[in-house]
Simulated assay, not measured.
Amino acid sequence: MVSTIVLSFSLTAAHATDLIDTAATAGTFKTFLVTVKAAGMTDSLKKDGPFTVFAPSDEAFAKLPSGTLELLMKDKAKLTKLLSHHIVPGKILVSEVKPGPIKTMQGDAVTLTSDNGKITINGVNVTESDLLADNGVIQVIDSVMLPR
């Protein structure tokens, strides 16, 4: 008796992961994703790029003074300015950080530092690095940076 084994292979295209999908998969950016949606920036972070997003974690948003986030959520212009202050054009991996000022999408300069592998942006710590997406990279930060 001869038995035949049929092997079936399914070839599917790799699913593209944009910055929004990457943040959602990480699970620690619920507040960031809500603010991005409220500011109307979701499409830009899904389609445009490349960007480096210095994304505050949920814990970072929790450190804001009481009522701050609620006020920002009611003012789309201020919310957009705040979020744009956390986004830099181009894809900057931690290994590629050049200390010094860099311009954000919001238009202000922020200062990157690198000290023995510890990266900061305007004095805020990068706590997790290089969450790669097809249209950029997310660097997790431990505080929300308020623009001037």
Rank of each mutant, 00 (worst) to 15 (best):
D134N: 09
D134H: 01
L132A: 07
S84E: 15
K74A: 13
N122E: 11
T111S: 05
N122W: 15
T35M: 07
G136R: 11
N122Q: 14
G107D: 00
I121P: 00
A39K: 04
L82S: 05
I87D: 06
G67Q: 07
L112Q: 04
L69V: 11
A133N: 03
S129R: 11
M73F: 05
G90H: 08
K78Y: 08
I102V: 13
P56Y: 11
K81R: 09
A38C: 06
K81Y: 06
T113D: 09
D75I: 10
F54T: 15
K76Y: 03
F29G: 13
M73L: 09
K98V: 12
L79Y: 14
V124P: 01
N116C: 00
P99C: 09
T104S: 12
T80L: 04
T35Y: 09
I121C: 14
V88W: 00
T42R: 03
T113N: 12
E96F: 03
T120Q: 12
E59L: 05
P99A: 09
P101T: 09
S114E: 11
M73Y: 03
D115P: 01
M105D: 13
E70P: 01
V137K: 00
L112N: 02
S114Q: 12
V34W: 00
A133E: 03
M73C: 01
D115H: 09
F29R: 08
F54D: 07
K46S: 10
S57D: 14
D134S: 12
K74G: 03
L112G: 01
S95Q: 06
D108T: 10
G100P: 04
F29C: 11
G40A: 10
G117Y: 03
T52P: 04
L72W: 14
A133M: 06
S66E: 11
A60F: 11
K81A: 14
P65F: 08
H85N: 15
F54E: 14
D48A: 14
L64N: 07
I119P: 06
D134W: 03
P56S: 07
V124S: 08
E128F: 11
V126P: 01
K30Y: 03
M105F: 04
D134A: 10
D75C: 10
S84T: 10
K91T: 02
K30D: 12
A62K: 15
S84N: 13
T127V: 15
K46L: 05
L69F: 12
P56W: 08
V34I: 07
V126I: 13
V97G: 07
E96S: 14
F32G: 00
G100K: 13
K118Q: 11
K78P: 04
K37S: 07
F29M: 08
E128K: 08
S114Y: 03
V126L: 14
K46V: 01
H86M: 05
L45S: 07
T35V: 04
G123V: 08
A55L: 15
V137M: 01
D75T: 12
